[in-house]
């Protein structure tokens, strides 16, 4: 019985996260802030949305 609770709880949390991520994706960036950049070439965290590597078409190997 606890397994069902665990599965339900995690599904609810996961769905909440996916929903919030989608809402964030759809919310436009405020005016005047479209071309902000952090100095991201030292960080190399490829999953971050700010990284300039996201603009490449092919993933680098």
């Amino acid at each position: 019985m606890p397994y069902v609770y665990a599965f339900l709880f995690i599904s609810v949390m996961g769905a909440l996260y996916a929903l919030l991520y989608y809402c964030n994706y759809k919310t436009p960036v405020p005016k005047g802030c479209e071309d902000l950049k952090t100095e991201c070439d030292g960080c190399k965290v490829l999953s971050c949305g700010n990284n300039p590597a996201q603009n490449k078409i092919e993933g680098d190997i």
Partner: peptide, 14 residues
């Protein structure tokens, strides 16, 4: 960062 980074850059495309 390695795991999420490789998933995003490589595994989702190959």
């Amino acid at each position: 960062c390695i795991i999420l980074g490789r998933a995003e850059a490589f595994a989702s495309k190959n």
